[in-house]
Design a protein around this nucleic acid. Structure first.
Lengths: 253, 253
DNA sequence: CGTGCGAATTGACCCTGGTCAAGGCGCGCC
DNA sequence: GGCGCGCCTTGACCAGGGTCAATTCGCACG
């Protein structure tokens, strides 16, 4: 099955497509890849990892992968498509917590409460690997690399949660957001300068704690300054260097 | 008197515990207690847990427990005192990430980067339990309860990180902050209605992404509305119910 | 092909909270 | 005691971005 040898544990050359039905290619971009590699593709333990993975999907735009309050049984790695997580308070106001691209993992924040504390909603047609968490925990006890990987993923997400924490201007937020997306696409092997925004302006604004109108205005201004080219949801970064200057307060901290 | 905090801090002679000197009482309030209890106080495994714990302190107000960039070797449970974590960007601006009370754990966000991504600074005289993380990981592999506990602590912190995420008014933020502190004190067995704010107005403001003046104004207003009594850093919640109404957008989400 | 609906853009106005500045309070120190 | 230094409070002013509203665009559907 995973005949393609991925030599060493260093960052492997990323593969451009995550959803072409070739599992080994997807796994190369997946957040679990280093755990798999550390476990060894041919060891019997990996068979167990395979065993507890289940492919689910497709979900269409707007469909829920999980809902607030659902009992926590598994975490999900995005195989294709994009997801937003959000909370809805009792007044019905939505709060976007994050966007997740192919290779990234959702559901980690449900371990402690044992119920999902937020919704996960597909933004376009999306497919997932579903990892049963009890099985994963048991496996982690036997394979230190898997345990360590889970610790690292959790800890990593602690770090990224602070991206939108600071009190920063709308320009800083939008610039940092675009660069963050670009970097995450690039790391998974997609273009880091041209990509599709699968979320609406409203979702971006909500995530950045701005008004949709403000996001629209900032993007227009960035375009008029030749920093980006944007048409609808198709984006190109024309001057990442300048954008980095604008957003650096958010990116370095 | 005593040496610089971080300069080669070595195992100290068992330092007196700040409150009552009874370790089992502290452990009852500590975030690790359920892991210890699950392991069984009398089982041999617990001896190992004891073994990898090291009591450190005292740290005086302003001293660092760890600094940004320090290699990650251990996590710390607060035994007494209060700590803030913060990042300082290259322009020298401080960003307060959180406050930690007795029984709570700092350093979890360093697992992934393997270096501390922030400073931890004592706000008053503080003592800690230091848990070697490699030893802790090894133990977690053998004792599922310990592993599960680490997962839960990490996941829990993911949830709290979003407390200050939303775009909320100054009143909402301050009310939610006070109630959050109150709840955390109550859960550890302290008074949930009267307590001491060990952090300055400036630290609170920075944490809540407000100006110090705004925090001051909101507290004054809350006092004039009979919601709280506050004198310097001594606080009493007079009307927690009303405060909860004000801050509920932040608390429920 | 028109219709209708949601997303996006743009403009006009206003409010929350930041900034600047001037005291007041507490406390350690000479 | 008097002084100095943070920390805190309070007031006056101002701007960044939210809100409201009108318009346009894209697209699904009858």
């Amino acid at each position: 099955m995973h005949s393609k040898p991925l030599a060493g544990r260093l960052p492997e050359p990323p593969s451009p497509i995550a959803d072409d039905g070739d599992e080994s290619r997807f796994c190369g971009t997946c957040a679990f890849s280093s755990a798999c590699i550390a476990a060894g593709y041919d060891k019997p333990e990996l068979a167990e990892l395979q065993c507890l993975v289940e492919h689910v999907g497709p979900f269409r735009a707007g469909e829920h992968i999980f809902r607030t309050g659902d009992p926590f049984r598994a975490i999900f790695a995005v195989r294709a498509g994009t997801v937003k997580t959000r909370m809805v308070d009792k007044e019905g106001r939505e709060q976007v917590l994050g966007f997740y691209l192919p290779g990234e993992v959702i559901g980690l924040n449900a371990i402690y409460p044992e119920h999902f504390p937020c919704d996960a909603v597909a933004l376009d047609t999306a497919y997932f690997c579903r990892f049963s968490f009890p099985a994963m925990s048991a496996l982690a006890s036997r394979i230190p690399a898997v345990q360590q990987h889970l610790f690292r993923m959790l800890s990593k997400e602690l770090g990224t949660a602070s991206l939108l924490a600071g009190d920063h201007s709308a320009d800083e937020r939008v610039a940092a957001f675009l660069l963050d997306l670009a970097g995450r696409y690039a790391v998974r092997g997609f273009s880091g300068t041209r990509f599709h925004l699968s979320m609406s302006r409203g979702d971006i604004a909500n995530y950045l704690r701005l008004a949709a109108e403000t996001v629209s205005r900032v993007l227009s201004r960035f375009r008029s300054q030749q920093l980006i080219e944007i048409e609808g949801r198709e984006l190109e970064l024309l001057n990442p260097k300048k954008l980095r200057e604008i957003g650096q307060a958010l990116l370095t901290e």
